[in-house]
């Protein structure tokens, strides 16, 4: 019966109701089915909402990022990239992807992030490379490039961070085994994370290479007809 909340979430997301409504409804119904009082459900809501404020910390970067955008940061990022001949969308994303994963693997997970790196720098550079190569980029292609920019940030940090011994995930796993009286070793857990980390690096780098190829296919013809527009310096 308690699975009804899961069902509500799945259906809600499929029929594309507003996720906030879906999630709240699922929480209320699950709590009621499990015989919790309305008061206690709302109290849990409030408690979790407060303790998880850390998820909103990205807002702290919005004033400076917005200010820099108003002063042309994104245009400058596009401009710099358009002058590098070897730069393609896939290559730029691959470079950022590798930096992100390797940095996370040595414990520097704070290099990167969607609000502070992807929106102001990585996405404009990836878009700028495409514009320099193909001229105007249609909106659906632009959105695809942006989605890929967000994805490299996630994939890089996810599969990199567990290689670092002191990361939260490793501490959580060790704590869990300790509670269950099973011997575990954080250093070995971090070592066992390396094969997957390498696999992710290879698989996603190949996908970024394929992204370049698909951009060539969809936009390449245009570029050969009219030479790419040179942007004013």
């Amino acid at each position: 019966m308690v699975l009804i909340g899961v069902v509500i979430v799945i259906i809600g997301f499929i029929i594309r109701l507003n996720p906030l409504l879906v999630v709240t409804l699922a929480g209320l119904v699950t709590g009621l089915v499990a015989h919790q009082s309305l008061y206690s459900i709302i109290t849990q809501f409030g408690q979790a909402f407060t303790t998880n404020r850390y998820m909103a910390v990205f807002i702290v970067t919005l004033p400076i990022i917005g200010l820099l955008e108003r002063n042309g940061l994104r245009e400058q990022a596009e401009h710099v990239v358009s002058k590098i001949k070897a730069a393609t969308t896939g290559r730029i994303l691959t470079v950022y992807f590798i930096i992100r994963e390797v940095a996370a693997a040595v414990g520097l997970t704070s290099i990167g992030g969607h609000a502070q790196m992807v929106r102001p720098l990585v996405a404009p550079m990836a878009e700028g490379a495409a514009e320099a190569k193909y001229g105007e980029v249609p909106e659906e292609v632009r959105d695809k490039i942006r989605a890929h920019s967000a994805a490299v940030d996630n994939i890089g940090v996810f599969f990199g961070e567990d290689v670092f011994v002191a990361v939260g995930a490793i501490l959580l796993m060790q704590g869990f085994f300790e509670q269950n009286h099973i011997h575990s070793d954080p250093l070995k857990m971090a070592l066992w994370a390396i094969p997957t980390a390498i696999a992710a690096l290879i698989v996603h780098a190949i996908r970024l290479y394929l992204l370049d190829r698909s951009l060539d296919r969809t936009l390449g013809n245009k570029a050969s007809k009219n030479t790419p527009k040179k942007k004013e310096a």
């Binding site: 308690v2 699975l3 909340g5 899961v6 979430v9 906030l20 999630v23 709240t24 699922a26 929480g27 699950t30 709590g31 089915v33 499990a34 919790q36 459900i41 849990q44 809501f45 408690q47 979790a48 909402f49 303790t51 998880n52 404020r53 998820m55 909103a56």
Partner: peptide, 16 residues
Amino acid sequence: PQLLATLGTVFTTAGV
């Protein structure tokens, strides 16, 4: 994200 975390809490206490 914060709201989803609240859902996670309710799921856990309800034994999902």
